[in-house]
Amino acid sequence: MEKLIKGIVDKVLAGGAPTPEEALRLSEAEGSAVFDLFRGASKIKEQFVGNEVHLCSIINAKSGRCSEDCAFCAQSAHHKTDAPVYGLVEEERMLESARAAEESGSACFGIITSGTTVRGKELDSILAALRKIRKETSILPSCSLGIIDEETALKLKEAGMDTYHHNLETAESFFPNICTTHPYEDDVNTVRAVKKAGVKVCSGGIFGLGESPAQRIEMAFKLKELDVDSVPINFLNPIEGTKLEGASHITAQECLKTIALYRFILPGKRITVCGGREKNLRDLQSWIFFAGANGTMIGNYLTTLGRNINVDLKMFSDLGLTTVMCAH
């Protein structure tokens, strides 16, 4: 395994890429070979993206009542959870949250809404908020508003949106186990439409849903094909009342190995570890950077609390990592 890892690392550093078969073999690393895998991912990260850490923060701008039936989601109307339910927050609330994110050190601020898409007055309000954030802060705003077309992406871009976030969630072959209310191709087409509009795309998924290692790799190669700009990696935090409330499908080591595999397959992309890191990685949260990540979300998530921001900032300092600052 050590020889295999070294050979693939050398290939990637020289501009090549692992095949899906090679990536699957890497996923089988055990014992001391796991550290070889992390070491290789670190080398690849340093060459292609450096050692800076990109921080992002979000606001849950519209919560609950989603018509989609995603098995993991606390905001789905198909589930009975304690997740908050409210309509789109006011523009000033979005601006205030953006300012707070900027002060905490985030370089990117995401406006996230529940539901299949956003239209009409809600879209107009988000466009107005984007203009204010661009005018009154230095943080780069992003949006995650569900399935959209190129025309909507262009409107968001003109208002100041820097990046559009839309997860594929999992591999196409596993998607029917997770969501049945829209086809996988709708998500793929959203990524393509946003790219066509000339907007950067942040797209990844959730691990620990019950997918196989091969399916984790399948999604990585789909993201590579779509040429997304950044990849958010989430780990399932089972929520009571959802279809996956009792799930326990991934270990801390598998989380780290998944990050490393994604760095091998997507060497030049920003890989950001987001939801579920506190629950799934526990004392190993700092290892995400040794495994190849170069970003993380700070603050709270959509319906669950994140770790104290000051604790995360101290972790970056202890690791000798420099964070990317806000800049238009």
Rank of each mutant, 00 (worst) to 15 (best):
S27P: 06
I139N: 11
P213Y: 10
L88S: 07
G204I: 07
N310V: 05
C56G: 00
S76H: 08
M1T: 03
I250R: 08
R119H: 15
L305G: 03
L302F: 08
I178P: 12
S138W: 04
T19C: 10
E22Y: 02
E92S: 07
T272C: 15
C179H: 11
Y262D: 01
D187E: 11
Q285D: 14
H78T: 10
G292R: 02
L154M: 09
I233M: 14
E91N: 08
L244R: 01
C70E: 12
Q253G: 00
V188W: 05
A77Q: 13
F221L: 06
R192G: 06
F38H: 11
F72N: 02
Y184K: 04
H182A: 03
A61T: 00
N300S: 10
L24F: 08
K314A: 13
C274W: 09
S230W: 07
Q285N: 15
L156C: 09
C73D: 09
P20V: 03
D162T: 02
L226N: 08
S286M: 06
K243G: 10
I148S: 07
A83Y: 05
G275C: 10
A197I: 00
H182L: 02
E158S: 09
G115D: 14
L313I: 07
C108F: 15
N234S: 06
G105F: 09
L226S: 03
S248W: 00
V34D: 04
I298D: 14
I126N: 05
M161A: 08
S144A: 09
L88G: 04
I126P: 02
K45T: 01
D187S: 15
I239K: 05
F72K: 00
N300P: 07
P267S: 07
T304K: 13
E278H: 04
L244V: 00
I133N: 11
E91P: 01
D162I: 02
V12T: 06
A107D: 11
F221T: 04
C255N: 06
E30K: 00
H165M: 13
G146K: 03
G205E: 13
K121T: 07
C56S: 05
L281P: 10
L127K: 04
S114Y: 04
